[in-house]
Amino acid sequence: MNVLQVRGLAKRHGREQTLVRAVDGVDLDVPAGQTLAVMGPSGCGKSTLLHLLGGLERPSDGQVWLDGQRLDNAGERALARLRRRAVGFVFQSFHLVEELSAAENVELPILLAGGSPRTARRRAQLLLEQVGLAHRARQLPWKLSGGERQRVAVARALANEPLVVLADEPTGNLDTAATNEVLRLFGQLRAQGQTLVMVTHDGRVAATADRLISMRDGMFVEDTWLAS
């Protein structure tokens, strides 16, 4: 069963001479449990694709289905609900809420989804243990290293047991040790059957995927299955 389905998806910026086709009519099916890596040169549209898949941007054309529900014509409120229930985001620059502690950042999506404070606290504790940061739960983001911040971001992405985790250059701002730690986490997610779509420049990250799509000028130029 496909968690994500995309048909004729396009995102255009500008007009006539200044027209940029960030994503140019792509089709995609992502089955449940698959780890998909999208690679390509800078500006090829891979981050825009990820934003469109997660409902962070609206497409110019085409349809996106997430868990059978259309995203491209959904209202802001419906998108918000879908994001908190079905999608977890991991960004290159972490995007943690600076005034909340690590644990509070992880609790955030649970509370937004209507979870009780007690449930949120327990789940955050569990997730932070899984990413090896239980001892740093009370720290504010600025006190954490880059790798630690990204692990908090991963824990936050998993908070509501999403159908799909969308990761945009998750190791782009990390050193080798921190990259290895994040890759280990992604390996665990893959083993647990978590659907994962990641955009990356890093060959090591792409190598951990089941499937690799190469993009150029907003289009898919190669779609390779790396593992059976």
Binding site: L56, A80, R83, R84, F89, V97, P109, L112, N160
Partner: peptide
């Protein structure tokens, strides 16, 4: 930016 962070984790416009 703060609004963006909240939107990403699923906060509705009302919240």
């Amino acid at each position: 930016r703060r609004v963006g962070l909240l939107k990403v984790v699923g906060a509705t416009p009302g919240l």
